[in-house]
Simulated assay, not measured.
Amino acid sequence: MNGTERPILLVEDNPDDVDLTLRAFKRAGVTRPVDVVRDGVEALDYLFAQGAFANRAGQPLPVVVLLDLKLPRVDGHEVLRRIRADPRTRLLPVVILTSSVEETDLVRGYGGGCNSYVRKPVSYTEFVEAARQLGLYWLMLNYEPPPTGAPPGARG
């Protein structure tokens, strides 16, 4: 992580989608650091500074979580449920970024408290444009909630 800049957390188990997302962000000019975890257990450990990520204790939460739904060990819906259930993370912006076209996933995602639901575009060009728009909105336009214990008006 670079200085005080909070990272983006990408929760994605498909290495090709991880590479595509990172390349798309780079091409779209998103310079924020991106931390990658490969399954739901790693995502929860990262966010709650436990297990393999216990060294994150005291580190700020990511600026936004990009969450795939179809994950090994703990699926994305359960990750979202646990994020929203904990006072430390309940306001954390979560964007479901998935290839799922199931309406039940869409409804369940919003019902679980996601801030946005984005279907991964099939073409690289469309994916780069989607990444650019995600970066512009979540990193430039959106006012994020303050970290726990931060004074009102503080920005990450």
Score class of each variant (00 low, 15 high):
M1K: 12
M1G: 14
N2A: 11
E5S: 15
P7V: 10
I8W: 06
L9P: 00
L9F: 09
E12N: 05
P15W: 07
P15V: 05
D16S: 13
D16N: 13
V18R: 10
D19A: 14
L20S: 14
T21N: 09
T21P: 03
L22C: 11
A24W: 02
K26R: 15
R27L: 10
R27V: 09
A28R: 01
A28N: 06
A28H: 04
A28G: 08
V30W: 06
P33W: 12
P33R: 13
V34N: 07
V36Y: 12
V36T: 13
R38K: 14
R38L: 05
R38N: 10
R38C: 04
G40T: 02
A43Y: 02
A43I: 01
D45E: 15
Y46C: 06
Y46D: 01
Y46P: 00
F48S: 05
A49D: 03
A49L: 05
G51I: 03
A52C: 06
A52M: 09
F53L: 02
A54V: 09
G58I: 02
G58R: 05
Q59R: 14
P60R: 10
L61Q: 11
P62G: 09
V63E: 13
V64Y: 05
V64P: 01
V65I: 07
L69M: 12
K70L: 10
D75Q: 06
G76V: 03
H77N: 03
E78W: 11
V79H: 11
L80A: 04
L80D: 00
R81P: 01
R81S: 07
R82K: 15
I83C: 07
D86W: 09
P87R: 15
P87S: 11
T89K: 05
R90T: 06
R90N: 10
L91G: 12
L91H: 15
L91M: 14
L92R: 04
L92V: 06
V94Q: 04
V94M: 09
I96C: 06
T98R: 07
T98E: 04
T98K: 09
S99A: 15
S100I: 01
E103P: 01
D105R: 06
V107F: 14
R108N: 09
Y110P: 01
Y110R: 00
Y110H: 04
G111W: 04
G112M: 01
C114G: 02
C114K: 04
C114W: 05
N115Y: 08
N115Q: 10
S116H: 05
S116R: 02
Y117L: 03
Y117R: 05
P121I: 07
P121W: 13
S123G: 08
T125D: 12
F127H: 07
F127D: 00
F127R: 02
A131G: 04
A131Q: 03
R132K: 13
Q133S: 08
Q133M: 08
L134Y: 07
L134C: 07
G135P: 00
Y137H: 12
W138A: 02
L139K: 15
L141E: 12
N142W: 11
Y143M: 10
E144D: 11
P146N: 13
P146K: 14
T148I: 12
G149Y: 10
G149D: 04
A150D: 11
A150M: 06
R155D: 07
G156K: 02
G156Y: 13
